[in-house]
Amino acid sequence: MSAKKKPELLVTAKNLDEARQLIHSGADALHIGGKEYGLRLPGHFTLDQIGEATEIAHQNNKKVYVVMNALFHNEMLIGLDEYIEKLAQFQVDGIVFGDPAVLMIAKKVAPQIALHWNTETTSTNYQTVKYWAKKGVTRAILARELSLEEVIDIKKHVDIEVQVQVQGMTCIFHSKRQLVTSYLNYTGQEIKNTSQERGLFLKEHKRPDERYPVFEDPHGTHIMSAEDICMIDHLGRLIDAGIDSFKIDGILKSTDYLIKVVQYYRIAIDQYVNGNEITVTTKDIQKIQPKNRPLGTGFYFKEQYY
């Protein structure tokens, strides 16, 4: 049996040490970014650190994509040209964007950098993907609300790379406002740390066992899913469909956990593309999964209602 096309295994990294370890654990590419322009990253890299991470990756024949998926207001455009020019000097392998402002400036000052389109929620059909491909986009990062069949159908109809998330939590709500701080002000409570490190979460009265992580940063308030996507049992269908990149999102996860997850997915991908039976399953990941984070398959196998 001939080997199948091997998809890229992509993972987020929160700092340089984690980036090194994830590369050596089997990741093909990294998602990193800075606090200026990146949303919902597990950690923030300065420009110099992005350059160092890119050098480390390239020494190991791996890639680095810089996440610039913020919601841009006018003031955020100041200095954007210089930032992207610096990324070009580092020879990063791609920029992840949602706002067309990033695309327009990148095409002007660094046309050699690949552009990965990621609007989080509106990448839901192949005609929209084709539109952005005509604008110069080389990869579409599909919405997490799509079913598996919809993902496969989009890939059939487009000529650019397609990326999907296979592991980790997802964002279910974002506001530019500081909602947690506003609530604490309203109730007269002392305002404490509301960042990722605080470990805040929301829960419903009717479903008290479900915990939704919530945190604030300069870009606003972010509420995350109550469970983690885990698609390791279904990689075969995604690989057969020709999906180009599988993302593991490591936000709010420890380095040790991420290393193990990357190793499991590396094994599974390599086994399948070489025609062998996959020997790792969701049960293996369940053994290392945080007890308050159940595993699921997101919307891949259930209908999404808007």
Results as ranks from 00 to 15, higher is better:
72 F>G: 12
14 K>M: 13
215 F>R: 06
299 F>W: 14
79 G>W: 01
243 I>A: 04
19 A>Q: 15
261 V>D: 03
216 E>F: 00
88 A>I: 00
261 V>F: 09
176 K>S: 12
42 P>E: 05
177 R>I: 00
234 H>M: 04
224 M>R: 09
233 D>T: 09
207 R>A: 14
23 I>Q: 11
50 I>E: 09
172 I>A: 03
264 Y>C: 09
15 N>S: 15
237 R>D: 14
21 Q>P: 00
251 I>M: 12
38 G>N: 10
212 Y>F: 15
136 G>Q: 06
66 V>D: 10
135 K>S: 05
159 D>V: 02
73 H>G: 02
171 C>V: 15
35 K>D: 10
229 I>S: 02
133 A>W: 00
152 I>D: 01
240 D>K: 04
94 G>S: 06
29 A>K: 05
153 D>W: 03
137 V>G: 13
72 F>A: 12
52 E>A: 15
70 A>P: 02
279 T>C: 07
83 Y>T: 07
43 G>W: 00
110 A>D: 02
278 I>H: 03
25 S>T: 06
107 K>I: 09
256 D>V: 01
6 K>F: 01
108 K>T: 08
45 F>K: 13
141 I>W: 00
296 G>Y: 08
212 Y>D: 04
81 D>M: 02
116 H>W: 09
66 V>A: 11
201 F>H: 15
120 E>P: 00
243 I>M: 05
291 K>H: 14
68 M>I: 11
65 Y>K: 05
14 K>L: 07
297 T>R: 12
179 L>I: 06
240 D>Q: 08
202 L>A: 05
247 K>V: 05
240 D>S: 06
57 A>E: 08
44 H>K: 08
153 D>N: 12
74 N>P: 01
40 R>Y: 10
100 P>Q: 04
290 P>T: 06
110 A>E: 06
3 A>P: 03
118 N>S: 10
25 S>L: 10
280 V>A: 06
168 G>M: 05
137 V>D: 04
299 F>S: 07
96 V>S: 03
293 R>K: 11
192 K>H: 13
27 A>C: 11
73 H>E: 14
77 L>N: 05
295 L>T: 04
16 L>K: 14
188 G>M: 05
259 I>E: 14
117 W>D: 00
37 Y>G: 14
11 V>G: 10
208 P>M: 09
229 I>Q: 08
59 Q>F: 11
297 T>I: 10
24 H>Y: 14
172 I>E: 06
173 F>C: 04
209 D>Y: 09
226 A>G: 03
81 D>H: 07
209 D>S: 12
71 L>Q: 12
284 D>M: 08
112 Q>Y: 08
254 S>Q: 10
155 K>F: 05
280 V>Q: 12
279 T>Q: 13
189 Q>P: 00
283 K>Q: 13
287 K>H: 08
87 L>I: 02
230 C>M: 02
273 V>K: 02
239 I>K: 10
291 K>G: 00
12 T>I: 07
286 Q>S: 12
276 N>F: 08
158 V>H: 01
230 C>Q: 11
16 L>Q: 14
152 I>G: 02
53 A>Y: 12
9 L>W: 09
290 P>N: 13
83 Y>A: 07
196 Q>H: 06
190 E>V: 07
279 T>E: 14
67 V>R: 07
72 F>V: 15
220 G>P: 11
277 E>N: 13
138 T>G: 09
219 H>K: 13
118 N>V: 00
267 I>A: 07
295 L>A: 05
208 P>I: 11
36 E>L: 14
24 H>W: 06
295 L>F: 08
